[in-house]
Amino acid sequence: MAALRRLTQARRSSSERAALAGEAAAQAAEQALRERAPAPVDAGSAPTEQPAEPQPVEPQSATPPVDHPQGAAFFDCDNTILQGAAVFYLGVGLYRRNFFSRRDVAKFAWQQAWFRLFGTEDPGHIADAQHTALSLVAGKRTADLEEICEEIFEDIVAAKVWPGTRALVQMHLDAGQRVWLVTAAPQEVARIIARRLGMTGALGTVAEEVGGQYTGRLVGEMLHGPAKAAAVRALARREQLDLGHCAAYSDSANDIPMLSLVGHPFVVNPDARLRKYARAHGWRVRDFRTGRKAARIGVPAAVALGAVAGATVATVALRRKRR
């Protein structure tokens, strides 16, 4: 990780930062996996040969592969597994623990309402949340934040998981496949969600830390868009996975790079751009939403008013707490 930290300090292009973020996420995920697993009895000292760099493949079928030893499944988090965005749940949870101001959490509430209403990620909202979170955790102990994340997501995972997506996760697990969460949320949050769902592990955004404390910087960049694809590619190389026999699930057009890597891309609760792309490329679409299906062709005024009302209720609740 020291080498990754040094690279982070240098000026990097967008593609280089994405590759660095992917490698950092894969390295952290593999390390977490080793820490959980018992040491092998007959582990040799000779280094193993590195498998070839996995390449993008053409989709093979509309049925998820669940019987190949080198297959695995990769699941996006926000609106694919969780109803809403993990980073905003984290923000509200940290506010209740005096990490954020009332103004910050009111902004989180509006951004969450936007995400739930339109089913698409706003890059400005994401960058906003990232900047706020990094500035506030700088200098804090990593162990402390991990403990807080455990408390925050104890109930959220149980209450906010889409049952249909959870069934897909379980299908891969029951078949003995490795199942990974891939998310822009911090790796500390990603690991908790993955563990609660019985997943193999998680790829998440890696925040730089020195001596057990956060520096307020990221390793590379947030695990988003091309960085997710880089992380999946890096993990596949480390775990000797065959991407042609892997499946990936996401709701967002931002994850087209990740979905295009695997032989079995699946679209879950898609935004409009991804739905259109999926239809053009013959990808399977699964929608577990009910009330929000109307968003495919436009948002009725009543739904829009509901979102505004929700944001207003959140603001009123904050004012009452201040009194």
Rank of each mutant, 00 (worst) to 15 (best):
G225T: 09
L218G: 02
A207S: 13
Q213A: 13
L203D: 08
A236I: 11
E188W: 09
L223G: 09
R195H: 14
A227Y: 01
R191L: 13
T200W: 04
T205H: 03
L197Y: 01
Q240P: 00
E188R: 13
R233I: 00
R238C: 07
A234V: 05
V206S: 05
G220H: 11
V179M: 08
G198N: 06
A194Y: 04
E209K: 12
H224N: 12
E188V: 10
T215F: 13
Y214C: 06
G225Y: 06
G198K: 08
A236E: 08
G225V: 03
Q213M: 05
Q240K: 15
A190L: 04
V206H: 02
E221G: 05
P226A: 15
W180T: 10
A229C: 09
W180L: 14
R237S: 12
V219A: 02
G225E: 11
L197N: 01
T200M: 06
E239R: 14
G216W: 06
L235Y: 08
R191F: 00
L218M: 14
A231V: 12
V232K: 12
Q240A: 15
V179T: 13
A234L: 04
A230M: 12
L235K: 11
T215Y: 10
H224R: 12
A229L: 05
G216Q: 06
L181Q: 06
G201W: 08
R217Y: 12
R237D: 00
V179N: 10
R237W: 06
G220T: 01
G220D: 01
T200R: 09
M199T: 02
I193M: 10
R233M: 06
E209R: 14
G216A: 06
G201R: 07
V189F: 07
V182G: 02
V210P: 00
L181N: 05
L223Y: 10
V232N: 08
E209V: 01
A231G: 11
A202L: 11
Y214R: 09
E221H: 02
V232F: 05
G225F: 11
G198R: 09
A194C: 04
A185H: 01
A234N: 03
V210S: 12
G212N: 12
T183C: 08
T183Y: 09
V182S: 06
A229P: 04
A207W: 15
A227F: 03
W180S: 07
R191S: 14
I193H: 05
R237T: 10
A236M: 07
R238Y: 00
V182D: 02
V210L: 14
R233Q: 15
M199Y: 04
T200Q: 05
R238G: 03
V210A: 12
A227K: 04
